[in-house]
Amino acid sequence: MKQFVINQPILDELTKKGIAIRQVFDAHKIFSVNIMASPGAGKTSVILRTIESFKNIYNIAVIEGDVIELDVERVRNLGVPVVLAHTGGSCHLDSIMMEQALKQLNLEDIDIIIVENVGNLICPANFYLGTHRNIVIASVPEGDDKPCKYPGMFKGADIVLLNKCDYLDHEAFELEYFEKGIRQLQENIRILPLSAKTGEGFDKWIAWLTNSYDRYIKSFTIDTS
């Protein structure tokens, strides 16, 4: 018997595919966001309201990580291109699923791609999809302990949206404890309470997304001065 040292990351191949996807996005100047949350946190509701705010300004497309077309139909009803990235029941999206989904979109006509990941606060954080920003959505009814329970997810976030903030007065949710849990992982991260139902706080989220998109587009401008 012999021992053979390998020392190779398990997700190496998938990560390389994710990097290739990022190159495709950049070649088309498409800004992309990966939306992650637990089931029921309101990913689809946030996406729908975001589309409503943006659809006459930017060309948006959506990739839905799911096994059925229910959310796909909801997005399609708003008149934006949407494709299902079929997960086969898996608990996360990976770069192979993304690659297949992207083949179904006309990338020439898109400014922003919103990816709705599978409802799960552990696995999606481990799979690089090539997207530019990770958006993590938590919600008030889930409880204030999610950042403490799922640090991997919150550690990798570029912004945290606290959805269903209209429930803050009705639930035993300590905003300070929730924020502290996140700040222990990332001191300066933006945390935005909002409600996809009432629209409260949405202006700040839309401003953040607009600024992120503008900065992304400006990054292609070569400074010749």
């Binding site: 018997m1 021992q3 040292v5 020392n7 190779q8």
Partner: peptide, 18 residues
């Protein structure tokens, strides 16, 4: 940690049967 996922090594029987 939260991220490490590695195939570290393997034990094999080679063609000679050892």
């Amino acid at each position: 940690d939260d991220t490490t996922l590695l195939v570290d090594r393997m034990r094999i029987e080679d063609k000679g049967g050892s």
